[in-house]
Simulated assay, not measured.
Amino acid sequence: MIPIQRIPAPDELTQELEHCKTKVTTWVAEGKTVRDVWSNGAKVAKCRIRQLLEEMAPGRKRCMYCEDNLGTDIDHFQPIALAPSRAFDWLNHLLACSYCNSNLKRDAYPCDEDTGEPLLIDPTAEDPADHLTLRLGSCQYEAGTRKGTETVRVFGLNDRQELVRGRTTTYTTCRGLLAQWHTYVQEGEEAEAADLAQALREQPFAEVLRAMEYTLCDKPHVARRLFKPPVHAALIEWVRAPDRMPEPAPQA
């Protein structure tokens, strides 16, 4: 998982969400539920929410939890079943794949027994690196906190072998692309270098490249041992490049 910068809701979306909240009052009085309003009475709001979430998502509209599959669902971080009042709260919406949303998370929302603090990572509200470390050798996550442990468990981040294999493949791909990108940079082939930089940014499992950057910056002795000289040199240049990543979205 990587941190996601949430785009502030534009006025049109804010107004539409308020309209949906008003509709909830009317529909509930008629015997319907908040979920009914979300499912059948919020078409415009959901369209606008999805557009913003897709802009925020890593790579090519990837799931904000597993980073593998395309984000197809609007997930309520705090589920409607537990917090119906947050059904139309922009800060409660994340982009997820159908497997993470419908097969795994569903209405799961573990909380600390004493403090009530949620024990799932919201990547738009905190840096997952405060709770999780991706070990490049195994391409599995190591949890440093209880929140990290619960997030790995709920989303099967280490148990789903397709995710581990995918991160492993991405690690191999990133090393190759970085080395070739560096060659293009050195040769002054700007167009080719830009194409490879875009390919690096759009890889699934964005956490892999981020873990490589962190290793270089935070544990240089490990980076020298882990990366062969062409990749190591390329990664140094990549970290120094001001345009290696897209411009961040404005924070709320």
Rank of each mutant, 00 (worst) to 15 (best):
A194T: 15
P84I: 03
A29V: 07
T25W: 07
L104M: 11
L132M: 11
L94H: 05
N69L: 09
V34N: 00
E30V: 06
L70Y: 06
P10M: 05
Q161S: 07
R86T: 11
T145V: 05
T22L: 12
R62A: 07
L17A: 12
V37F: 08
V37Y: 06
L95K: 07
A193H: 08
W38D: 04
L82F: 01
A81P: 00
P123M: 02
P229W: 01
T215L: 11
V44H: 10
A45Q: 06
R146V: 09
Y171M: 12
E54Q: 14
R175K: 10
C20R: 15
R146C: 03
W238F: 08
Y184L: 02
A179W: 01
M1H: 05
S102I: 03
G176M: 03
S85H: 14
T14P: 06
Y141K: 13
K228N: 10
P123R: 02
R50M: 14
R106P: 02
P123A: 03
Q198G: 09
L136Y: 09
L157C: 04
L134Q: 09
Y109V: 01
E30R: 15
A252P: 15
F155V: 03
Q180G: 04
E16D: 14
G144R: 13
T115I: 09
R201E: 12
P250L: 14
G188R: 01
D114L: 13
R50G: 08
G148C: 03
K43A: 14
R48I: 02
A143T: 12
R225E: 15
E237G: 08
A125K: 13
V222E: 15
T25V: 13
D243L: 01
D107Q: 09
L94W: 01
A194G: 11
T170E: 06
